[in-house]
Design a protein around this nucleic acid. Sequence first.
DNA 1: ATGAAAGCGCTAACAT
DNA 2: ATGTTAGCGCTTTCAT
Lengths: 340, 340
Amino acid sequence: MSTRPLPATKAPTMADVARLASVSVPTVSRVLNGNVNVSQSKRERVLDAVKELNFRPSFAARALASARPEAVAVVSGNTSQYGYAETLRGIENTCRREGLSTIISVIDSDEPAEVDRVVSQVLSQPIVGVIVLKFDPPGVAVLDRLVDKLPVVAVSGLRDTRVSQAMLDETRAAEELTGYLLDLGHATVHHVRVPPSRREDGRTTGWRRALRRAGKEVPETLDATWEPASGRAVGRRLAEDDGVTAVFCGNDEIAMGVVRGLNDAGRRVPEDVSVVGFDDHPLSELWAPSLTTVRQDFHGLGSRAVQLLGAEIEDADNVGRLSNERPAVVVRDSAAPPQA
Amino acid sequence: MSTRPLPATKAPTMADVARLASVSVPTVSRVLNGNVNVSQSKRERVLDAVKELNFRPSFAARALASARPEAVAVVSGNTSQYGYAETLRGIENTCRREGLSTIISVIDSDEPAEVDRVVSQVLSQPIVGVIVLKFDPPGVAVLDRLVDKLPVVAVSGLRDTRVSQAMLDETRAAEELTGYLLDLGHATVHHVRVPPSRREDGRTTGWRRALRRAGKEVPETLDATWEPASGRAVGRRLAEDDGVTAVFCGNDEIAMGVVRGLNDAGRRVPEDVSVVGFDDHPLSELWAPSLTTVRQDFHGLGSRAVQLLGAEIEDADNVGRLSNERPAVVVRDSAAPPQA
DNA sequence: ATGAAAGCGCTAACAT
DNA sequence: ATGTTAGCGCTTTCAT
C-alpha cells in the first residue's frame, strides 16, 4: 500500500524499448516521432513495448540531441496578482495548443543577484524564446538583459521599441475612463497610483492627458502599494479634502480599499465621491457599490504574446511587432455625477 | 537599435570557453561547479572566458550527463485562485532557496487526455520529484497516476495515505469556525460548498461534525461554483428563508457573494444573518462588513511541501509523512449573535 | 524500411 | 592540478 518499489526503479530508456521490441533504437525514435517509414508490424511492437515499460522520452536528451527546443520561458513577477495570473493562464493555454511547454521563472526583486539568477535560468534552458511580463521593475531589468540574446516578447502596458510586444493600451483606457468622470461633471479627478514599472504608468499618463485636454487642474497623485489595505489609508486621507469628488485608482483592489477608507470617514460612494478602478477584478462587480472600471483581457493578452513569439521565430524579421488592444470601460455603480 | 544580430548567433558551448581559456573542457566544468582543485591562474582565465562569451551551461546537457536533476515539478489546477497562487509562491520560494528550479504544469480538467499530457510532461523532465496540488479532481487524477513512479508530495486539505502530504487541517478549522457560530447562539449553521475535490471537502465534514456534536439540525448544503458571482445567487436564495441566521461559506469569495446577495434582498449582515468564509483572502478585511474567516497559511503550506519532498529524497523511507497545521479562526465583523 | 555510427554539451571516471 | 576517455538518452545522417 504505502510502500514504494524501493530504489525507485530506474526509468526505462529507448534502448530498453528497442530491446523488448527487437528493433533498433532509431526505429523506436521514428515511431515515437510520428511520421515516416516504419512497417506496421514493427510499429505495433514498439508501441506495445512503450506501453508495457511505461516509457517516457527524456526531455533533456531529446532537447540535447535535436537542438530543437519545444518550450517557452515566461518571466513573471508576483504571480498572485490577478492580472499576472490571468496572463500566465493565457500564455499557458496558447502554448499548449501550439505543442509548447511553458517554463515559468518567478522574479521578486530587481536586485542584480536576482536578475542574474533568472537570466541564467532562462538562458540555460532549451527554449524557443522568452515572454517577459514587464509590468514591474524586475521584469524590465530582465528584459534589458535578454534583448538581442534570443527571441523575446514583452507583455506590458507601455511601448518598448526594442522587442515585439503584446500590449493593453492602458494609456488610452485611462484617458477614456477619466474622461467619463469629467463628463459626469466632476471639476477634476484625483488619482491613486499603484507602484509604477518605470517613471510613469500608462494609467497615470492617460489620466493626466485627459485632465490636460479638458483644461482641468491636475492634482497631486497619491501612492498606494500592491496591498489593498494601503488603499484604505489613502481613502481616509482623501476624505479630509472636500475638493475630492472623483478618484481614479490604479487598480480595482486599491479602489476597494479607497471606498472602504472613504466610508470609514463617513463619505458615501458614489453620492459624495465617485471612485473608479482598473482591471475588472472578479470581485469588482460584487463590491458594494459595484465598481466602475476598465476591463482588461489579460487572458487574450497572454495569447497574443505567444502568437507574437511564434511569428518572430518563423520569420526572424518579424521583430519589434506590436499587438495592441484597447481595454473597455465598464460602467457600474461607483461613479455618479457630483452632488450639487 | 531595433535590429537583431541576425540568425541569433549560436550559443557558446563549454568547448568554446575551454578553447578561449586554453584549458580542457573538464577544467571549465570544474571551475563552474564550484569546488575542487583548479589553479588560480586557470580559474581566472576560465572565468574571464565565460564572461566574455557570455556562456551559460545547457540545462539539458547538464541534466543528461549528471543524471542529477535539479528541478521539481509542480502540478496545479487553476493558478488564478488565491490559494493556489499563494501555495505556488511558497513552493517556488522554498525551492529557490534549496537551489532547485520549479517547473509548473497546469491542468484544467480531469479528462484522460489532459491527465495523460500532464503526466507525460512531468515524467519526461529531469526532476527530483513532484508536488501535486490536489485540491481538485484533476489534481487527484494526476496524483493517482504518479504515485509509486517517483517521489510525490501531495498538498491538500484531506489525508491521502499513499504519499507524503502537506496539509492544512480544514476539517478541524471548519469545525472550530462552525462551533464559534453556534456559541454565538445560532440555532444552526447553513453551509455553502465550493466544488469539492472528492466526495466531500474537509470544510463540509468539519461543519457537519460541529453541528452533530452540538446536537443541532444539519441543514441541506447549497452549492456554489468557483465564481464569486455564484455566491450572490445563493445569498438571494438564502434570504428567502427566515430560518437562516448563520451561513458558513466554502471560501471568502463565495462569502462576499453571499453577503451581497443577502443585501440585495434587504437582509443585513451581521444583524439579520451572520456570514463567515474560509481562507482569509486579502480582500476579506476590506469587505464591508469585514469577514470573519479562517486564516490559511498557503505560503507556509508550499514550503512544507518542499521540505517533505526533500526529506523523501534524502531518505527513501521517509515516505507517507504528514505535515499538518491547523488554520486559525480570524474573528471580524460579519458574524454576531442572532437578533432577539 | 531499417540499422550502424556519430554526435548534441556536458559530467564522471580514470589517468597522469 | 589537469587532461583523456566514456558515456548520459536521444536524434540525425548515412548506408543498406
